[in-house]
């Protein structure tokens, strides 16, 4: 490749090459369904267990099941992140999506641990649904995934539904997580498989 000033023909050729590369790279991100399934189950089981233990006075030891599932999900995400780092190419969009979920997760966790006097247990449950629902909708627009967007809407709708069935709020929020997030994960996995 000679290194002289470009003439217009060469400039056109170079710009066409850049266009080709950028349009190839601009393909939609392939969202993996597994993290949605894992966090859908964890979120759903936490709301379910809270309803059983706090409202219906079930065995408090069930809370340990929630905690164990949460820790297992964190371990899974570390493994999942390590698997992603083995790929040949990591897009900026992929990193952005990871950051969106990480910020949602950390914000919800901090509110749960440090703001429990302000937010009652159902408010905390709703915060998890709200943060993850908003994150799923945002990621849905970023990755052009209707499944993720629809799942996010279902999570948000579950908060409204829980508001009008307060006695069973935990079950309703749990259903939101299982159907909205877990269901979206299953649909994404069926649509394009998990890597």
């Amino acid at each position: 490749m000679s290194e002289h000033e470009l003439d217009p023909l060469e400039a056109r050729d170079h710009l066409a090459m850049v266009d080709r590369i950028l349009s190839r790279i601009d393909e939609p991100v392939c969202l993996g369904g597994l993290p949605y399934i894992v966090w859908g189950v964890v979120g759903g089981s936490t709301d379910f267990v809270t309803q059983v233990v706090v409202v219906q006075h079930g065995a408090p030891s069930l809370l340990w099941v929630s905690l164990t599932l949460m820790l297992a999900a964190v371990a899974f995400m570390i493994y999942y992140g390590m698997r992603l780092s083995r790929k040949e190419r990591r897009g900026l969009l992929g990193r952005h999506i990871g950051n969106v979920f990480m910020i949602s997760w950390i914000t919800s966790l901090v509110m749960m641990l440090l703001a429990s006097h302000i937010f009652s247990y159902w408010a905390q449950g709703a915060i998890w649904s709200l943060m993850f629902g908003a994150a799923m909708m945002y990621v849905g627009t970023l990755a052009r995934s209707r499944i993720s967007f629809a799942g996010g809407i279902l999570l948000l709708l579950s908060i409204i539904a829980a508001n009008y069935s307060y006695q069973y709020a935990g079950y309703v929020l749990a259903a939101g997580f299982i159907i909205g997030m877990g269901g979206a994960g299953v649909a994404l996995s069926l649509a394009h498989g998990d890597e």
């Binding site: 290194e3 002289h4 190419r89 900026l92």
Partner: peptide, 26 residues
């Protein structure tokens, strides 16, 4: 001005990172 270097930069433009084999392939 080198097409190969320009192509490599364009490949990296929307990526956090790209491995050498992936750049070689593209």
């Amino acid at each position: 001005l080198s097409k190969i270097r320009l192509g490599a930069i364009a490949e990296l433009l929307t990526a956090e990172w790209v491995t050498f084999p992936a750049l070689l392939k593209s």
